[in-house]
Design a binder for these strands. Structure first.
Length: 587
DNA sequence: TCCACGGCCCATATTA
DNA sequence: TAATATGGGC
DNA sequence: GTGGA
């Protein structure tokens, strides 16, 4: 249920504490990352940092895009005439960086804030600028939690079209060390994983340690991850490439846009708050975020991928006037404001919000006092705890909750007699906490009981129970951010026909849910109607096997994935640890 | 020009 | 009353 | 809103 939130003692909610430590005082910051960095920049400046437009003699830090390449850095530094130091970034390549300037990812800013002091810059080096490993000891360092063994250098081209996993035997016991990535075994430095010999006992110990050090800071860029029954240190370039690949596929940023059409004025229309357009707009925003060059002319705008005709018009207007007429229109749009508020009530979607609006509801108090609206149970709860549910939960509190649940969970397992294979239990907070967020809006705890208990009737207190064999899928589902989840499944659906064919000659994709992964056949273009789910209706004869939405056929056999890495591997993707499963937003 | 844009479970409303 | 459709959360 | 078929 909804966690009860108490207002933080003392400081009134919403009013930022007046006397926050000036973490960044003395820092002169250059932001190369023109992404969704407004909040980061603002916070850094609030806390004493001075922003500079470009690298200067007194610059202390450059905040870089996490996927910055050495080449991009060199381009941006062209014109720098001060003293430099040379950094070898692997593959014989090197880059000259200004002396005395630290290059860090945005995480350095966001994670230093809760710590009230500046974290060591070297732990936040963009992988592309990390020195090449000097010795084979790098893997050991990585396992020990040090950073900086990135594989910099190599271009982040997406030329690597699907290298299919050529074999797919599953790691069973003894040979559970070879599966690195889906990438071909080449001369390329395979720095992205290193197996760590952890026992399951140490696993919990490590978890506790990590928790204590980690409560405010979140996971470090390089960390130990559980993969099925083994633990691996994960870092670096391969996961980033996978993230880029999925981003490009999901947002279609791999194709260039066309000319902007003549249509210049925007119809003011009643704006829709949600719906499929949001994907298109996300796409446009992603295109802009990823565009690492200044936009100065209309021609520049035309070069940005992911922008369609309508988005281009809007961006060009902003370029010319500094703002979009749509912004003022939206601000003045009474209906929009009301709908936005109503949508914040848990249990309320666009349909209910619009219906209420048409019935005259304008405020939450209206909603409370109306008796003719037949709110659902969820909506009543959402309304009652409206303020509570808006509060965020600090990371430390999520950790406490996790601890309590975990202790209780193990007590129950003992009571149920599941001690023989207790180490195969999974009981950890997932969701935004697992992804390292400093605060969460809810606490998601995934419990997967060990095989010896999977038959037991111990479901009473849970709404859903995951069998041991479904753990990797549950983990994958709950560990992903929403957009990453969708992108992964879209990729599985439509991007890996070849791999699916190996499972079933008729297949052209996979369907991934929170419990399994199955081959499917999707007809190329589905004309007409989308059929309701559940089938039934006798009129047109169903195909034999399970027919899902719109003619998609579910095939066999299901893909056996003993751990989460296998899911990625079967999709031809390098494993991405949870804290990297974002396309943007660093907070 | 038409289509899809994740996948699935639950609660409630509507229809047969 | 059962089957189906719709709205919603995650 | 957008790109693919």
């Amino acid at each position: 249920m909804a966690p009860k939130r108490k207002a933080p003692g003392g400081v009134a909610a919403g009013s930022p504490a007046a006397k926050e430590p000036q973490v960044f005082s003395g820092c002169r910051l250059v932001f190369w990352a023109h992404r969704h960095m407004a909040v980061t920049q603002q916070r850094a400046k609030q806390l004493g940092g001075v922003q500079q437009p470009a690298v200067a003699a007194d610059t202390t830090h450059v905040i870089c895009p996490p996927n910055l390449t050495a080449q991009q850095a060199a381009d941006k530094l062209r014109g720098w005439s001060g003293p430099t130091r040379e950094v070898a970034v692997g593959q014989g390549a090197s880059v000259r960086l200004p002396e005395g300037v630290a290059f860090v990812t945005p995480d350095w800013v966001s994670r230093s804030i809760p710590k009230h002091h500046l974290l060591p810059e070297e732990q936040f080096l963009p992988p592309g600028l990390a020195p090449a490993p000097a010795s084979p000891a790098a893997a050991t360092q990585a396992a020990a939690g040090h950073d900086g063994a990135g594989t910099g250098g190599q271009q982040q081209q997406e030329q690597q079209e699907q290298q299919q996993p050529q074999q797919r035997e599953h790691p069973t016991g003894a040979d559970a060390e070879q599966h690195r990535d889906a990438a071909p075994a080449g001369p390329e430095p395979t720095s992205s994983t290193a197996t760590v010999p952890f026992s399951s006992q140490q696993m919990w110990a490590a978890g506790q340690d990590a928790q204590q050090q980690d409560v405010l800071q979140g996971p470090a860029f390089c960390r130990v991850e559980r993969r099925g029954s083994e633990f691996v240190a994960v870092q670096g370039a391969k996961p980033l490439q996978t993230v880029d690949k999925l981003r490009a596929y999901w947002f279609h940023t791999h194709t260039a846009g066309q000319e902007a059409p003549p249509t210049s004025p925007q119809p003011p229309k009643t704006s829709q708050l949600n719906g499929v357009c949001s994907h298109a707009i996300d796409k446009a925003v992603q295109g802009l975020i990823m565009w690492n060059e200044a936009l100065e002319s209309e021609e520049d705008v035309d070069k940005v991928p992911g922008l369609g005709p309508k988005s281009k018009v809007k961006v060009k207007e902003i370029l010319a006037k500094g703002t979009s007429s749509r912004i003022a229109a939206a601000a003045a749009d009474e209906q929009r404001k009301v709908l936005t508020t109503l949508l914040e009530v848990w249990g309320t979607g666009t349909a209910s919000a619009s219906r209420w609006y048409s019935l005259g509801v304008r405020t939450l108090d209206n909603l409370r006092s109306r008796t003719d609206l037949n709110l659902t149970e969820q909506q009543r709860v959402g309304l009652k705890y409206y303020d509570d549910l808006k509060q965020k939960i600090p990371r430390a509190e999520v950790a406490q909750t996790e601890k309590i649940v975990r202790e209780t969970c193990f007590e129950l397992i003992e009571r149920w007699g599941g001690t023989a294979d207790v180490e195969r239990t999974y009981c950890s907070a997932t969701g935004s906490y697992l992804r390292g967020k400093p605060q969460s809006s809810d606490v998601d705890i995934l419990i997967c009981l060990p095989p010896s208990l999977s038959h037991a009737d111990c479901h009473d207190f849970l709404t859903e129970v995951y069998a041991s064999s479904t753990t990797p899928f549950a983990l994958n589902y709950f560990g992903n951010s929403q957009s990453f989840c969708r992108a992964t499944r879209y990729w599985a659906n439509t991007g890996v026909a070849e791999a699916a064919r190996k499972y079933n000659a008729a297949a052209n994709g996979f369907k991934i849910s929170d419990r399994d992964m199955v081959p499917i056949y999707r007809p190329p273009a589905q004309r007409h109607h989308r059929r309701s789910r559940g089938g039934g209706g006798g009129s047109d004869s169903e195909g034999d096997a399970g027919a899902a939405d719109g003619g998609t056929t579910v095939l066999e056999p299901a893909v056996a994935c003993p751990d989460e890495t296998t899911i990625f591997r079967e999709l031809g993707l390098a494993y991405v640890p949870p804290h990297m499963r974002y396309f943007h937003d660093f907070f």
